[in-house]
Design a protein around this nucleic acid. Structure first.
Lengths: 186, 186
DNA sequence: GTCTATAAATGGATAGAC
DNA sequence: GTCTATCCATTTATAGAC
């Protein structure tokens, strides 16, 4: 069995993605884990502690994925596909990107969480920006504006599409994906 | 003075846009209005009643705007500009589109609210779809795919950009707007 | 329509035993 | 690490007087 702490983070992360941070409780976690509420508090004394841990954990997940892709010999298009594939998983689970979820609650979460959220989002855009830059250098992608501007647009459009898809069906998402990819074709 | 009911809806709508539906309370409303919590319950017995009223009211607001634009002699591009202008207001107020906010809470709100939300979003896409169709017929706009597919992409990309802009600055939004408009240029 | 009072449930959080 | 027990604040919601 994994470490309890990891287990709690995973569970909480699932709830953030499907319900939001403010809308789940220690009670939800304790029930799903089959332990007492106080036991959850033992691992994460306050909900903010848990929130920060969720963000840090997600940042590590992204780092692992991005490092793997950066160190691979995949083409920019293949990297982009791998990046985009993750969002399809959210939809399948009736969820959205956890960063989108927390974004919608930006005025409710603590400043520390908001800062962490912002930082991770910048990191994500920076990563996508790198893919686009490489694609353009190789003459495999084409776009107006800077790589980082284009990446910012692409990332926010993807996440908007995921949110939309939860209520309106997966086609909404696949359509956005192909539209975005067409935009980048030389 | 406006009707209390309207006043409560407006106030609640503001809180949905900036904080989300689950994260504001009757207490928030009563304090801002200077009346007792029970007085708010008099107008909207349950929070779901209030939630439904918020959605219906927003639908009326959209209908008024869309009807006005449809009956005007504005060009498709001018209509699109007017449509997009509303989103800039959200950002200025540290808010996001109320539909985006509720979307993020899709698994938390009631089924009735979810259905209403979905319906309004379809209506919005249908409206934008009309603008795009007219633009293409007049040879003033150009896009691959159907008008409704393109409208779905445009709407979700706009809302994603608004969410992103709240944490990363207005430039994020203006950049997305110009990218989307460039996509449609013939 | 508005008030006070209050119920009933839930949420986050802590103390102290095992 | 986990438990029971408990605290305190908040939340939704209702009863009944003015």
């Amino acid at each position: 069995m994994r470490k309890r702490k990891e287990e709690i983070i995973d569970l909480a992360m699932g709830l953030v993605k499907s319900r939001g941070f403010d809308s789940f409780s220690y009670s939800d976690l304790s029930k799903k884990l089959g332990i007492a509420k106080a036991s959850v508090h033992h691992h994460f004394p306050t909900k903010e502690d848990l929130g920060m841990a969720i963000l840090e954990n997600f940042c590590e997940t992204l780092t692992a994925l991005y490092d793997e892709l950066n160190e691979s010999d995949l083409t920019p298009w293949e990297k982009l596909d791998k990046y985009m594939a993750r969002f399809a998983e959210y939809i399948e689970n009736g969820a959205i990107c956890p960063l989108s979820s927390l974004q919608a609650e930006a005025n409710v979460i603590s400043e520390a969480m908001r800062d962490s959220l912002r930082e991770i989002e910048e990191y994500e855009i920076y990563f996508v920006s790198g893919i686009l830059e490489e694609g353009r250098e190789r003459n495999e992608m084409k776009f107006d504006g800077s790589p980082s501007e284009t990446a910012g647009f692409l990332v926010s459009a993807m996440k908007g599409a995921v949110q939309q898809a939860r209520l309106h069906g997966t086609d909404f998402f696949t359509n956005s994906v192909s539209t975005l990819k067409n935009m980048l074709k030389p």
